[in-house]
Design a binder for these strands. Structure first.
Length: 467
RNA sequence: GUGGGUGUAGCUCAGUUGGACAGAGCACUGGAUUGUGGCUCCAGUGGCCGCGGGUUCAAGUCCCGCCAUCCACCCCA
């Protein structure tokens, strides 16, 4: 038999064996986001193409070559969302959410689509958890998002991650990148645990433009020596030259002017605010003046969380402030800040850390039957139990008793109820405890009550053990 | 879009310089125990050897094309 179809390129099934981890991440993320005051919003997976083109920037790679765009039967141009911020901003404006008390902090969780060459940590459909806060321009917003991200990652990595430990804080220096003549090397692993937080500020639009011009002036004499990619970056998105991986380009950027030296008074104050709050929270970060985010809308604070547990695509999460996007979409002037976390990348990283054992499915009770009378009686009882929330299974294929019990064992059943012909004839069944092998005989009438009671107490002790 | 690696059983992989019916471990099914799981032993099911073409008496093995996958560039979460 040869299979006729397989999944499209670059997309992946999330299999039963991985689903516990997905749930663990989603549940932790939900509860933490909600504790920080964020409420969930679900936007459609596709939008008018123009939303992304305007929001993300026509010149970005995402818009110019990575979007899944199609026209529907009426010829409307639609695009599968490549990111979550633009749709959330759209929904925020469309429904006037700023007038709804408590609706200025939103989070989302779901699939995104980008047409890219698949790679470690990069698929064409991937999942993001993201948060956006609209309104307050203050550094607390930026800081709280980084703090939230940090603690979410730490909680998920369990073994203790990004720092908090005294030793790690001892290593901590704001000036790590300053002292090393702004050559961005990878941060020392021993100082950062599993995740590293990179922080930068691009300043407001005027700082940004001033800096870009300065950078161009610096680069102009040796543009011709830069790699081909950087030559085109020089015109289209000059700052991007900063994070080129080409070693030659890197060394030429060694003495380049730094964004942080071009921040205006307000931007500098804002950034100091963010840094101070993070320091207060005991969060270690790397000041990374070469951190340039690819989306056009960022202003002021940008941040990125990387992990050395990942491949070349080492960013687990990224975000920053975008103080003009809402306005650009036709809304009132509304500063905003947000981040997104890549689920698949997080999982990749988490797989490099020892994880709590998979709980596995536990089917509390299994009904093993002999003969057709037993079979129909068992089926009725099984259904009753299921409807009372007690997981129950039985074999439908007329297997031998031996293999039915083997099945029960593999399903992890706590009890196996054996419907033998002899017992049935006297109105009873055998209740076998799988852990110990202890067996007792009960009447058919009482068996479902017994199982419901035992399930309830078993659940309690199970919860104590597994949380 | 560009480069390199890899496609043999459900999974992990052997398969010699082209040569007879394509193999192992794990998993699955059954038996040893005609009514009792895990351990052990025995047996069995399961492969268009990624797809298409070519060279040859002969191709899993060599050549070409395509597809998929992995890794990297690029870009980002």
């Amino acid at each position: 038999m040869s299979i006729k179809f397989q999944s499209a390129r670059g997309v992946a099934d999330i299999l039963p064996s991985e689903i516990d981890l997905w749930h663990r991440i989603e549940n932790n993320a939900r509860s933490m986001l909600e504790a920080f005051g964020y409420t969930e919003i679900r936007t459609p997976v596709f939008e008018h193409t123009g939303l992304f083109a305007r929001g993300i920037g026509e010149e970005t790679d995402i818009v110019s070559k990575e979007m899944y765009t199609f026209s529907d039967r009426k010829g409307q141009l639609l695009t599968l969302r490549p990111e979550g911020t633009a749709p959330v901003v759209r929904a925020y404006l469309q429904h006037n959410l700023r007038m709804d008390f408590g609706a200025n902090k939103l989070y989302y969780l779901g699939p995104m689509f980008r047409y890219e060459r698949p790679q470690a940590g990069r698929t064409r459909q991937f999942h993001q958890i993201g948060a956006e806060c609209f309104g307050p321009p203050d550094p607390e917003v930026d800081a709280e998002q980084i703090i939230l991200l940090f603690h979410l990652l730490e909680r998920l990595a369990i073994k203790g991650t990004a720092s908090l430990s005294k030793e790690a804080c001892g290593h901590f220096q704001y000036s790590f990148f300053r002292q090393s003549s702004h050559t961005v090397t990878s941060p020392p692993k021993e100082a950062g645990g599993y995740f590293q937080i990179h922080l930068n500020s691009l300043g407001c639009r005027s700082c940004h433009i001033r800096y870009r011009d300065e950078l161009r002036k610096y680069l102009a004499p040796f543009v011709h020596k830069l790699c081909d990619d950087c030559k085109s970056r020089f015109n289209s998105n000059t700052l991007r030259v900063l994070d080129c991986k080409n070693p030659d380009c890197k060394s030429m950027m060694k003495d380049s002017p730094r964004v942080l030296d071009f921040l205006c008074h307000d931007c500098d104050g804002h950034f100091s605010g963010v840094k101070g709050l993070l320091k207060d929270a005991g969060i270690q970060y790397y000041l990374n003046p070469h951190l340039v985010r690819g989306l056009d809308y960022y202003t002021r604070t940008t941040f990125e969380v990387t992990s050395h547990l990942l491949g070349a695509q080492n960013a687990v999460a990224g975000g920053g402030r975008y103080d003009h996007l809402v306005e650009d979409f036709g809304g009132p002037s509304t500063p905003a800040c947000g981040f997104a976390l890549g689920m698949e990348r997080l999982i990749l990283a988490l797989k490099g850390i020892s994880q709590p054992k998979d709980k596995g499915r536990v089917c509390f009770s299994f009904f093993a039957t002999l003969g057709s009378e037993a079979r129909s009686k068992a089926f009725r009882l099984m259904t009753k139990l299921r409807l009372h929330g007690v997981p129950a299974e039985m074999d439908y294929q007329g297997r031998t008793l031996k293999s039915q019990i083997r099945m029960a064992d593999r399903l992890g059943s706590v009890y196996t109820i054996i419907f033998g012909e002899e017992e049935i004839s006297r109105g009873s069944v055998i209740l076998r405890q799988m852990g110990t092998g202890y067996q007792e005989e009960c009447t058919i009438d009482e068996i479902s009550d017994i199982l419901m009671r035992r399930h309830a107490s078993w659940l309690e002790s199970y919860k104590e053990m597994h949380g």
